[in-house]
């Protein structure tokens, strides 16, 4: 099987399974909405600065991702389909397929969370294009790191739960810092050039995590 076709097949399988049950998507969306509602209700009328708004936004997304993305591999272990995948595909194809699926999932999550914040807080977005770029890059970096660690924990047999959060969060500190500061700039409505450093860091982070994941995934996946 050629590489692209293999990766695409893994992605399509995951997408089809997800669309059949809509389990991950609906759980995560409800989680995000519930948390957003509770947090914003708790804050009440207190005026928020851009810093607080964007930090809250990304913390919600981060927790949702840490809760939901581990499932992609735990599911394979539970259903006993790991061997089948291992037989028919090369490890990098599995990683690429799952990464694509997870990116899509996190992308949807970020959009919904940002939408909820926009609606409930009455955010004024100065530079919508920049915000979209930041959300997309953030989702990519988040999915890149989470996919490998999800596979790691699924292999360890302790999939999901608090352990994934513990492993994930310190690694995601650089992502969180850049993405918060870039979203803040997007809310303030600056030009792309003014957020260049953050955008470059995000691109670099996504590149580094995905490259490292591709190199390391073989050792996680093969027995």
């Amino acid at each position: 099987m050629n590489w692209l076709a293999g990766a695409w097949a893994v992605f399509k399988k995951d997408l089809r399974l997800e669309l059949r049950s809509r389990y991950a998507l609906s759980t995560l969306l409800l989680f995000v909405l519930a948390v957003t509602l509770v947090v914003l209700f708790g804050i009440g009328d207190a005026p928020l600065t851009g810093e607080v708004e964007t930090t809250l936004l990304w913390v919600v997304v981060l927790f949702a991702a840490a809760l939901g993305l581990g499932r992609a591999f735990v599911y394979e272990e539970e259903q006993g389909t790991v061997l089948l995948l291992r037989l028919h595909t090369r490890p990098s194809m599995v990683y690429a397929g799952k990464l694509l699926f997870n990116t899509l999932l996190v992308g949807a999550l970020t959009l919904v969370t940002a939408g909820a914040f926009w609606l409930m807080l009455g955010l004024e977005v100065g530079a919508p294009g920049l915000l979209l770029a930041v959300l997309a890059l953030g989702a990519l970096g988040l999915a890149g790191a989470t996919t490998l660690l999800g596979a790691l924990l699924a292999r360890a047999g302790t999939g999901g739960g608090a352990l994934l959060t513990v492993l994930l969060f310190p690694l995601l500190t650089p992502l969180l810092v850049s993405v918060v500061s870039a979203s803040q700039k997007a809310l303030a409505g600056v030009a792309f050039a003014a957020a260049r450093e953050e955008l470059l860091t995000l691109v670099g982070f996504a590149g580094v995590t995905i490259t490292a994941s591709v190199l390391l995934f073989d050792y996680v996946w093969e027995e």
């Binding site: 490998l148 790691l152 650089p174 850049s178 670099g204 580094v208 490292a212 996680v220």
Partner: peptide, 27 residues
């Protein structure tokens, strides 16, 4: 298994570390 899985995590952390200690603090 412990050796393999924790080694992967450690190497992954090695890849991220330059961001933590050198890229971001300088920005």
């Amino acid at each position: 298994k412990r050796g393999r899985i924790s080694a992967v995590y450690l190497l992954f952390a090695v890849a991220v570390m330059p961001f933590l200690l050198y890229v971001l603090p300088r920005q």
